[in-house]
Nucleic acid binder design. Structure first.
Length: 467
RNA sequence: GGUCCGGUGGUGUAGUGGUUAACAUGCCAGUCUGUCACACUGGAGAUCGCGGGUUCAAUUCCCGUCCGGACCGCCA
């Protein structure tokens, strides 16, 4: 039956649904049916694959609730001689085992779980789970501590809400790629093994490389600027970065996914912010369109149809606002502490109804050497805060080599150590700027999770390198 | 890296200088006419993180150690 369709037809999701239906009418069983699609299959013989979510073994009937990544469904088996083989299998079944069940799906309004049940004719256990799990993965308790859940992350991720986080991550990333590819950006993959430490202000990991010391990339910074020098105009990269920071907080990791972009021919950092604002809004739009209902049900997330403009508050003005409105003075003169970040986020929400706020024009003392300075000696740079946490640092870069060298020297960076980087600026390079965006920090705040670990597939931190 | 807090059945907690170490949940067995966080009855399951000290006696008090968490600093 399948043979009459071409490969390209099968690859087209639109066609595939039509073909599915077509096949379904004539072939009694097909391979992979997602549980969310089950209402399309009433009174038909289907084969389901899933994890055993619950078993209720009563005197005359057995109920097995199956779960896949898209939902749950009840399988009902009467206890009688005809079904004895299946009854015996179910009796020794354990929760979280995987099974393959073939049977007829009926609409049953009296079944609380989705008003349907599958009456099986074949029941196969494809893998048996041990009797007791090392963590509690019931969605109504789920009370195991975090350490243990990280040790058994593969089980923790079986929770529906955890899967939803990664669906959202996929859509967020896809939305950014979509925006950029439609706006003449090119995706790059810069190396993560570096002969010279890259610049982000953070510490680097050293590793042995055939007897010499090399470094793990802290940021694609230098390479996305190289792409500017290569005439690529606009680039982006979504990839891992490594930070040897012994940070014990809920929002740091030693390895994380950084979303970076860089664009040419800008007039100031405001052009970079314009872009980032568009990208962020596009991400929210896609999340709302594709996952809005689920995110509202499970996480109570409400997306606004139209996001307000992100306010842009100069750094020193932000300091003044925090002092005047909230009577708080941070200890650091040239940067914000956590409390100031929270407060300026609060201020932006109150005054501008925006969960996002740009803080702009930081003093040079708080910024790396490659940020461009304006006439007053402040950097043409910005941070983007989302719900009171820094998710981005960006800037116009200094592309004039003499000034760049001078700024590196002021920061105490030996010029010969970054000579390969300075080279990018010696043979013509457009004015440019860009930003780095912490996807997990965004997701952590979006989902109102306690830690970056809750929205990371596998977290890596100072005390966590396994599993 | 700094400060503070914590480690008790599979899991989450309670508690105590001498206990049969409690409760919930999970697990196992049985009972139960369709459950749906099924219910009921019974059962198994803990050398109370590790090492040392004080004491007649330590899971409990003290010291050390390991592991973890929170906050701060560093940054995305």
């Amino acid at each position: 039956m399948l043979r009459q369709f071409s490969v390209s037809q099968l690859k087209n999701p639109y066609m595939r649904d039509i073909i599915r239906k077509d096949i379904y009418g004539s072939v009694p069983c097909m391979k992979q049916i997602y549980f969310c699609d089950l209402p399309n299959y009433y009174n038909q013989t289907i084969e389901l694959h899933g994890f055993v979510d619950k078993i209720r073994d009563l005197q005359f009937v057995q109920f097995v609730v199956l779960r896949d990544s898209s939902g749950k469904v009840q399988v009902t088996i009467e206890k009688n001689d005809e079904l004895k083989k299946i009854n015996d299998l179910v009796s020794k079944l354990t929760k979280e085992s995987t099974v393959k069940v073939k049977g007829i799906l009926y609409e049953r309004p009296n079944v609380k779980l989705r008003g349907m049940e599958l009456i099986p004719s074949e029941f196969v256990i494809t893998s048996v789970a041990a009797e007791e799990l090392p963590i509690d993965i019931l969605d109504y308790t789920n009370k195991s501590n975090k350490e243990l859940r990280l040790d058994n992350r593969f089980l923790d991720l079986r929770l529906e809400k955890n899967y939803l986080i990664f669906k959202a991550q996929t859509i967020a990333e896809a939305a950014m790629r979509e925006y950029w590819t439609e706006h003449n950006f090119v995706e790059i993959h810069s190396p993560k093994i570096l002969g010279t430490a890259s610049e982000s202000g953070a510490e680097v990991f050293k590793l042995d490389y055939f007897g010499r010391t090399v470094y793990l990339a802290q940021s694609p910074q230098f390479y996305k600027q190289m792409a500017m020098g290569a005439g690529f105009n606009n680039v982006f990269e979504i990839g891992p970065v490594f930070r040897a920071e012994n940070s014990h907080t809920a929002y740091h990791a030693t390895e994380f996914t950084s979303v970076d972009c860089e664009l040419s021919w800008i007039d100031s950092h405001h052009d970079v912010m314009d872009l980032e604002e568009e990208v962020c809004k596009h991400v929210e739009k896609r999340l709302r369109e594709k996952l809005g209902a689920e995110l509202k049900d499970t996480f109570k997330i409400e997306f606004q149809e139209v996001l307000p403009a992100f306010p842009r508050i100069p750094f020193y003005e932000a300091k003044r606002i925090i002092e005047e409105k909230y009577h708080y003075v941070g200890e650091k003169e040239h940067d914000f502490d956590r409390k100031e970040e929270e407060l300026i986020g609060k201020y932006a929400l109150k005054e501008y109804h925006s969960e996002y706020v740009f803080v702009i024009d930081y003093p040079f003392a708080a910024r790396p050497f490659y940020h461009m300075l304006d006439d007053s000696g402040l950097t043409k740079s910005f941070d983007l805060l989302y719900k009171g946490i820094e998710i981005t640092t960006g800037a116009q870069r200094e592309h004039r080599i003499e000034i760049l060298e001078k700024q590196a020297t002021i920061k105490g960076l030996p010029l010969d150590s970054i000579d390969f980087y300075l080279n990018f600026f010696r043979y013509g390079i457009p004015p440019h700027g860009g930003y780095g965006y912490g996807l997990t920090r965004f997701l952590m705040r979006l989902f109102d999770q306690e830690s970056i670990r809750d929205v990371t597939f596998l977290y890596r931190g100072p005390n966590r390198v396994n599993p």
